[in-house]
């Protein structure tokens, strides 16, 4: 049967895509951020997952306001990274795993999560930047797992609640574990942490709140579900709502997890950047 080996979080800031393209790893601004990644790459190298579920939020490439799914699951043979309008380098397609996608879709809908399925999906920096961080040279890294993108709406309110996000992850975990193939799966929760791009409050970052989230997501994710969406915007900023992706990832893991690594750095671009690795306990 399929096994979920762990979960990884990272910010997915577009500027990181540019920094990778320009190999700025050792520059003083970037080093404290990039130094958070080698321990996770080593773990991935040792574990060699077959599939990566990449939970991200589309930022206006794959979806527009004409048709905006709250939760969307990729079911394609490959995922194309397209021009987003402001010039981060375009990558080659990422191979998918449509058989597992459809198994997950069946499981989610049976569990009453009425998701949108996507046999074509253009993936933006929210998907590609984490892949490049964990598998340098992606998609051409020889250890690159097959990928399945899952996108949640944080573009337009109403966005899902933190409770819904955690429960989505639980249903996702159940669906993956019921897949009959003996494969290893890793789940990414990307985005965040606190940041706000719009309005007179642009530049808002909240270290205390971010650190609380990074602690509770390991030990007591249920407590985080008590945070209302309005409170999440107040504390984490309008784009800090991307923390929902972390909650979706966490729900898919075992109830107890072993925290193996974490890094937090302010600022990368306008954002408090958080990186974590949690290993499942079974």
């Amino acid at each position: 049967m399929a096994r979920i080996i762990g979960g990884i979080t990272t910010s997915h800031i577009p500027a990181v895509g540019n920094a990778i393209a320009n190999e700025m790893f050792d520059e003083p601004y970037w080093k404290p951020f990039f130094d958070g990644y080698p321990p996770i790459r080593e773990w991935l190298h040792d574990e060699r997952p077959d599939v990566v579920i990449n939970i991200y939020n589309d930022h206006g490439l794959g979806f527009f306001l004409n048709q905006m799914p709250t939760f969307a699951i990729g079911a394609a043979h490959e995922y194309i990274n397209e021009d987003e309008g402001w010039g981060i380098p375009k990558l080659d397609p990422f191979p998918g795993d449509p058989e597992l996608s459809w198994h997950i879709i069946e499981g989610m809908v049976a569990d009453e999560f009425d998701i949108a399925s996507c046999q074509e999906l253009a993936v933006d920096h929210g998907f590609t930047v984490p892949m490049q961080l964990f598998w340098p040279g992606a998609p051409h890294n020889p250890e690159m797992p097959r990928a399945i993108p899952i996108s949640a709406n944080t573009v337009q309110h109403p966005i899902p609640t933190l409770n819904r996000a955690l429960n989505f992850g639980k249903a996702l975990g159940k669906a993956i574990r019921s897949y009959p193939e003996d494969i290893k799966v890793v789940v990414l929760g990307t985005g965040g942490l606190s940041h706000q791009l719009d309005g007179e409050r642009a530049g808002h970052i909240n270290r205390e709140f971010d650190e609380m989230c990074m602690e509770k997501i390991v030990t007591a994710p249920e407590e985080l579900t008590k945070i209302s969406r309005m409170e999440l915007v107040r504390q984490a900023g309008t784009q800090g709502t991307e923390f929902l992706m972390w909650m979706m990832m966490r729900g898919a893991l075992t109830e107890k997890v072993t925290p193996l690594h974490k890094n937090y750095h302010i600022p990368i671009s306008n954002t408090g950047a958080g990186t974590m690795l949690m290993e499942c306990t079974d």
Binding site: Q156, H157, Q196, D198, G199, M230, R234, T238
Partner: peptide, 16 residues
Amino acid sequence: TEFDSHTSIPGTTLFD
């Protein structure tokens, strides 16, 4: 939560 684009969060408009 009643979402309203004119929130009580200063300098913030929710895109609803």
